[in-house]
Design a protein around this nucleic acid. Structure first.
Length: 426
RNA sequence: GGAGACGUCGCAUAGUCCGGUCGAGUGCACCACCCUGCUAAGGUGGAGUCCCCGUAAGGGGACCGCGGGUUCAAAUCCCGCCGUCUCCGCCA
């Protein structure tokens, strides 16, 4: 949620942000009214409570014979306090509900508008050209016996896959490359829970508009995470961090699960959009003043990966309306997918400023000794989908695929993935 | 899965049986100052988080794992949840 004090002092800025997102500005006025109502209710309760506290002491000290009369008076007061307490709680809940529905304050410079209003920051690398008809990633994956969709469907359903042989190895290699780079950049590697409690899921903001995207296990009331961001953000929930020696940086490796509700018919072929995949996620807890610089840093790590994998890509500055409620700015890195003739998102990195941390109650101590809500940022360093661009970009006429040099050490020096006859039958 | 014990202010603990004098004592650690001729010891004081009112000084409220309940009044009694530990069983 946004900072209530900021809302009170700069409602116009909040309105501008809402407008850029294409969301309600009237909500800001409602939030202000709810804030005033909440504070009034709290004051009323506290005044009564103070009275009751004083009275309680009188009762405690009174001689026995006077107690009965005093208790009778106290009962009446207690009733009022209870009512005032309930009213204050209601007012507070109402305030939280409204303020919680406001999106994060968009950072200045983020393009206004919706999904198609992004700004291309740069295009990098040479788009591959072929003097033969390029195969798509699934065709290649099958030739290499690296991807098996039919059996994924047989065992788990549509949009589930097997990565097999060099497919499995390639993914592990990619993840390991990312992990090594993350470690070199000062990130602490983490293997995180993939099932989390409702309050963590809610705290990270994933139970809002996209709740139907998330798998839920009713028997245990646990949620399957769609990204390790959830577990990494929840990691320090309710804590006051020591950031005196710099930000806390984690690299989470986990499987991710998404129901892909509402994406029916889209990307049904291959592993572009599946229910389960692996992902290496960078996550930073940092002083808000340094958040924008960190955002650029995360982006540079992502671009470094794409560049070294020999992929052509572009970086877009996502428009305000396409940010999701927690992000104040989001960069997507999209790789060129030859058979689709378009750029497809491989990674994104979000600066959530203090929005996510405020909901999770994560703070740090400033030099003055005061507490301050931290900023959180996240960004993907490797994920299953990347195999699509890698396979397609580096394919050769015979269906073999040249392994990018940076990955070879992770594949025992393997330089080329060669088509193989499937031993288990097609 | 069965049985039991426990969860207090950074850490360690007292308080809980017998509800009010407990937002809470003690030790260690911490900060400031004093003292001390020297990497020590001693003394005094301070110090938590969140919220509300206030320009401020200051005032008030909440917080003893979390959430409810009983009561004029709950760290203390009752219920639920979460977590930790011990024992038994079971399975990797």
């Amino acid at each position: 949620m946004i900072d209530p004090a900021f809302l009170r002092e700069h409602p116009d800025v909040v309105k501008a942000s809402q407008a850029a997102r294409g969301e309600s500005t009237q909500l800001v006025d409602e939030a202000l009214a709810a804030d005033a109502g909440r504070r009034r209710a709290i004051s009323e309760f506290e005044t009564l409570r103070a009275e009751q506290n004083v009275f309680g002491k009188t009762v405690a000290k009174a001689p026995k014979e006077e107690k009965a009369a005093l208790v009778a008076q106290a009962q009446e007061l207690a009733g009022k306090v209870k009512a005032a307490d309930a009213a204050a709680n209601d007012a507070d809940a109402e305030f939280k509900r409204i303020v919680g529905s406001l999106g994060n304050l968009v950072i200045e410079g983020v393009p206004a508008g919706g999904e198609d209003d992004y700004v291309v920051l740069r295009e990098v690398g040479q788009k591959p050209t072929f003097d033969f008809e390029p195969r798509d990633h699934l065709e290649l994956g099958e030739l290499l016996d690296a991807i098996d969709m039919p059996r994924g469907a047989k065992v788990a359903g549509a949009r589930f896959s097997y990565l097999k042989g060099v497919g499995a190895r390639l993914e592990i290699a990619l993840m390991n490359l990312g992990l090594d780079r993350a470690i070199a950049a000062g990130f602490t590697p983490m293997i995180t829970p993939t099932l989390v409690r409702p309050e963590i899921m809610a705290g990270t903001g994933f139970l809002g508009k996209h709740a139907d995207e998330i798998y839920h296990l009713p028997a245990d009331d646990l949620y399957l995470v769609g990204t390790s961001e959830v577990a990494l953000a929840g990691y320090h929930q309710g804590e006051i961090l020591d950031l005196a020696d710099g930000p806390l940086r984690y690299a989470g490796w986990s499987s991710c699960y998404r129901r892909e509700a509402g994406s029916g018919g889209k990307d049904t072929r291959g592993i572009i959009r599946v229910h389960q995949f692996n992902k290496l996620e960078m996550f930073t807890y940092i002083d808000p003043a340094d958040a924008e610089a960190e955002h650029e840093r995360l982006l540079s790590y992502q671009e470094g990966m794409l560049q070294d994998l020999g992929l052509a890509y572009r970086v877009i500055d996502t428009a305000a309306g396409d940010l999701g409620s927690s992000a104040a700015r989001k960069f997507d890195v999209e790789a060129w997918v030859p058979t689709q003739g378009t750029y497809r998102e491989l990674t994104s990195t979000s600066n959530c400023t203090t929005f996510q941390a405020r909901r999770l109650d994560i703070r740090h101590r400033t030099e003055g000794g005061k507490t301050q809500t931290v900023a959180t940022l996240n960004g993907t360093l490797a994920t299953t989908r990347w195999l699509v661009a890698i396979l397609e970009t580096h394919q050769q006429p015979d269906g073999s695929v040249i392994v990018p040099e940076v990955l070879r050490p992770y594949l025992g020096g393997l330089e080329v993935l060669e088509p193989v006859a499937r031993r288990g039958g097609k």
